[in-house]
Simulated scan of single mutants.
Amino acid sequence: MTTSAVTPTTPATDASSASRSRLHVLPVVGNPRPGSRTRVAAESLSRAIAQRLGGGLTPTVDLADLAPELFAATRPAVDDALRRLASAHVAVVATPVYKASYTGLLKAFLDLYGADGLRGVVAVPLVVSGSPAHSLAGEVHLRPLLVELGASVPTRALALTEAQLADLDEVVATWVDAHGPLLDAAAVRA
Results as ranks from 00 to 15, higher is better:
residue 112 L to G: 10
residue 132 P to F: 07
residue 105 L to Q: 09
residue 111 D to Y: 02
residue 114 G to W: 02
residue 109 F to P: 02
residue 128 V to Y: 04
residue 104 G to W: 04
residue 131 S to C: 05
residue 104 G to S: 00
residue 129 S to A: 15
residue 102 Y to V: 11
residue 120 G to H: 07
residue 105 L to T: 05
residue 133 A to C: 07
residue 120 G to T: 09
residue 127 V to E: 01
residue 120 G to P: 09
residue 113 Y to F: 14
residue 118 L to G: 04
residue 132 P to T: 04
residue 116 D to W: 13
residue 120 G to V: 03
residue 133 A to Q: 15
residue 118 L to F: 14
residue 113 Y to D: 09
residue 116 D to P: 12
residue 123 A to I: 00
residue 101 S to A: 03
residue 131 S to E: 06
residue 110 L to Q: 06
residue 131 S to M: 00
residue 121 V to I: 14
residue 117 G to H: 01
residue 108 A to Q: 13
residue 139 E to N: 12
residue 135 S to P: 09
residue 121 V to H: 02
residue 138 G to R: 01
residue 135 S to W: 03
residue 140 V to R: 10
residue 120 G to A: 00
residue 124 V to H: 12
residue 128 V to P: 01
residue 138 G to Q: 12
residue 131 S to T: 15
residue 119 R to M: 05
residue 140 V to D: 03
residue 107 K to Y: 05
residue 109 F to I: 06
residue 132 P to E: 08
residue 139 E to F: 10
residue 106 L to N: 08
residue 113 Y to A: 02
residue 103 T to R: 01
residue 123 A to M: 05
residue 141 H to A: 13
residue 111 D to E: 13
residue 112 L to H: 09
residue 119 R to S: 15
residue 137 A to F: 03
residue 134 H to N: 03
residue 114 G to D: 12
residue 127 V to F: 00
residue 139 E to K: 14
residue 114 G to I: 00
residue 101 S to R: 13
residue 110 L to E: 08
residue 124 V to T: 11
residue 104 G to I: 12
residue 141 H to Y: 10
residue 108 A to S: 08
residue 126 L to W: 05
residue 110 L to D: 07
residue 112 L to A: 03
residue 101 S to L: 13
residue 109 F to E: 11
residue 130 G to A: 10
residue 136 L to Y: 02
residue 104 G to L: 08
residue 108 A to Y: 03
residue 125 P to V: 11
residue 125 P to C: 12
residue 113 Y to R: 04
residue 109 F to L: 05
residue 122 V to W: 00
residue 107 K to Q: 13
residue 109 F to Q: 00
residue 118 L to Q: 05
residue 132 P to C: 03
residue 102 Y to G: 09
residue 109 F to T: 01
residue 136 L to D: 00
residue 126 L to Y: 07
residue 137 A to M: 04
residue 116 D to F: 15
residue 115 A to W: 07
residue 107 K to E: 09
residue 106 L to S: 03
residue 128 V to D: 02
residue 136 L to F: 12
residue 134 H to S: 07
residue 117 G to Y: 08
residue 134 H to M: 02
residue 110 L to V: 10
residue 131 S to D: 08
residue 130 G to C: 11
residue 135 S to V: 07
residue 108 A to N: 12
residue 114 G to Q: 06
residue 125 P to Y: 02
residue 110 L to T: 08
residue 112 L to C: 14
residue 109 F to H: 08
residue 110 L to H: 11
residue 120 G to L: 00
residue 104 G to V: 10
residue 108 A to G: 15
residue 114 G to H: 05
residue 131 S to G: 02
residue 138 G to C: 07
residue 140 V to G: 05
residue 111 D to H: 11
residue 131 S to A: 14
residue 128 V to A: 06
residue 126 L to N: 14
residue 102 Y to M: 04
residue 116 D to Q: 09
residue 122 V to M: 05
residue 138 G to P: 04
residue 117 G to A: 10
residue 127 V to S: 07
residue 124 V to L: 11
residue 107 K to V: 09
residue 110 L to F: 13
residue 103 T to E: 04
residue 131 S to N: 15
residue 133 A to V: 03
residue 113 Y to I: 04
residue 141 H to N: 12
residue 134 H to C: 00
residue 131 S to K: 09
residue 140 V to L: 13
residue 121 V to W: 05
